[in-house]
Design a protein around this nucleic acid. Sequence first.
DNA 1: TATTTACAGTACCGTACGGGTCCGATATCC
DNA 2: GGATATCGGACCCGTACGGTACTGTAAATA
Lengths: 153, 153
Amino acid sequence: MLRVSKITDHGIVILSNLASEPDGSTQSAREIAAEARLPLPVVSKTLKRLARAGILESHRGAKGGYALARSPAEITLADAITALEGPIGLMECSVHLGQCSHESTCTIRGPWQRVNDEIRASLERITISELLPTPGGDGELIPLRVASGDRRR
Amino acid sequence: MLRVSKITDHGIVILSNLASEPDGSTQSAREIAAEARLPLPVVSKTLKRLARAGILESHRGAKGGYALARSPAEITLADAITALEGPIGLMECSVHLGQCSHESTCTIRGPWQRVNDEIRASLERITISELLPTPGGDGELIPLRVASGDRRR
DNA sequence: TATTTACAGTACCGTACGGGTCCGATATCC
DNA sequence: GGATATCGGACCCGTACGGTACTGTAAATA
Ligand code: FES
Ligand code: FES
């Protein structure tokens, strides 16, 4: 299905929730889980990964919690995905060579690489702040800048 | 990693190999496996899926085998991926609603959908024939039409 | 028609990863 | 300094899927 992993899914939701808070505010894992209506362990694990990748700041102890390490407009979807499930690579050989059993006979590596780059570029274009409803109006969504005219099937 | 499944990976390689044969020619699963240097069972399963999806024609019995059901230029990557691993949907809720536990509180569905559409559009733009080396020159690759200027990180 | 070839479908197995639990480390507050 | 709250890391478990094997069925050939 070309799906991002479940944990990434959760992570994006969490990030967008955090981004809609006044900036710099820290929330505990428990609060975040409640807001996202997700089980605490899952949220906790997700937060840990995001913190380790430097997307979130973590503060321990009482009154501790997590906060965005930088502005939502500076966090791209590619950042989040990479942090949560590793480098973006559609195929095994997209991430580093020598994986596909026999690159010698395979002529499609180059073209695949371009597809990969194109998709990564798409994901790098979108930031967390673009996922939020507009601060003023409720429910209204910021329109995305789509790369080219969208062509449905 | 935002990876396509392994079977899709194999499928694309197989399709590109078939596409480089003179068109209409059928090859047995055994031959195809030999050419792709992949274990026969894996290739066999992959071919079955592609045939069921109508991308390949299968012919049983002696002298049977598989052949492309249509021109390589008419088979997009999206077709192949959909055939091999189901509909393209980055998140659970991208494919059909009512999956994400609580769509009511989730504000990011709309934007995500656009990201999904954009990526699917990319995959629909690329055909199998574009993965092949140019028929005349050896090793030279047909340049892809990238959607927009590629911006590396 | 008998035989051979090769695809079709089903069922089975092992690993990988999402999901969950537990204990240790650290900062705040009394 | 003790108590409490919260994050960090290691470990365990169940499911899902890639990989495999087996049996059935259709087509070609003699
Ligand atoms: S598919 Fe990976 S090198 Fe060919
Ligand atoms: S509805 Fe699926 S992430 Fe919100």
